[in-house]
């Protein structure tokens, strides 16, 4: 499989603080990749650099072989959708209007949205089971409903790759599972999806591949059951976890904080 988005030797600093220390990563279509790691590991910074929102200090990110910096912002926006952490709406617009904002990379400077754009918005709302919310004000939706509308916004631009930063944080168990189902369905339909997750249980179960970050670098990458080994959970997350299978799918439940590991660091 050829990579759609590729990071090579990516080094990123925020102000004077070095956050990513030269990492390599490939993202392809038709897979759901989980970016995991403890707080401060550099997950969000990595996602922002992959979306072209941060300029790397060294190394580069390429989309189909072309460096992001050389692409016009609008054509990059048509290929790569980005769902920031804790997103929402600053004004009480309707869900349909919010989702239409996702069509902007496709709109000419003074052109109004046309039938093609309306259809994309309707399809995006349908894909996240949010069609019935179209006329509601975004600011009056519940957390789970808002998440589905924001996901629809990112899908409305019909990107080949979706980068989502902690889309399930703040959702209750039902809506977490539902959101992950949506992301997995997108990957099955052919999109590349990379998602930052804190919930290891969801990461283990839904992702095709996990990328474990710690201290600004990748410490493990591969199938969830390989990445989430007891040793790594102890050394990176400083937890002991319960492992198991249910219906053929793996689960990992963090159980005890490892006090000694923290003191040893």
């Amino acid at each position: 499989m050829t990579a759609l988005l590729r990071a090579e030797g990516l080094r990123v600093a925020l102000g004077r603080r070095q956050v990513l220390h030269g990492l390599d990563l490939d993202l392809s279509e038709r897979e759901l990749v989980g970016l995991i790691g403890p707080n401060g590991a550099g997950k969000t910074t990595l996602l922002r650099a992959l979306a072209g929102l941060l300029a790397p200090e060294a190394g580069r990110v390429t989309l189909s072989g072309k460096p992001l910096a050389s692409l016009p912002p609008r054509s990059l926006a048509r290929e790569v959708g980005y769902l920031p952490q804790g997103g929402g709406s600053y004004w009480p617009v309707t869900a349909a209007e919010l989702v239409m904002l996702g069509r902007m990379p496709h709109l000419g400077p003074w052109r109004k949205p046309g039938a093609r754009d309306e259809a994309a918005v309707a399809a995006a709302l349908a894909a996240t089971d949010a069609a019935h919310l179209a006329a509601r004000k975004v600011t009056q939706l519940s957390g789970g409903e808002r998440m589905r509308v924001l996901l629809a916004r990112a899908l409305a631009g019909e990107p080949r790759l979706l980068l989502a930063d902690e889309p399930v944080s703040g959702l209750d168990p039902y809506h977490r599972l539902e959101a992950m189902e949506h992301l997995r369905a997108l990957a099955r339909d052919g999109k590349g999806v990379a998602v930052v997750l804190h919930d290891l249980t969801l990461a283990a179960r839904y992702c095709d591949r996990l990328v474990l970050l710690d201290g600004g670098g990748i410490v493990a990458e591969g199938a969830p059951s390989d990445v989430l080994s007891a040793d790594r959970l102890a050394s990176v997350y400083r937890v002991r976890a319960l492992h198991g299978f249910e219906g053929g799918e793996p689960f990992v439940v963090p159980w005890d904080p490892l006090v000694q590991a923290r003191e040893a660091r």
């Binding site: 929102l53 926006a77 600053y90 904002l101 902007m104 990379p105 916004r153």
Partner: peptide
């Protein structure tokens, strides 16, 4: 149009192709 995109916040507006 950029102001419309900013309804989603600065990061999302940038990711929609606005400098």
């Amino acid at each position: 149009r950029a102001l419309d995109a900013l309804t989603l916040g600065e990061e999302a507006a940038s990711s929609l192709g606005f400098r």
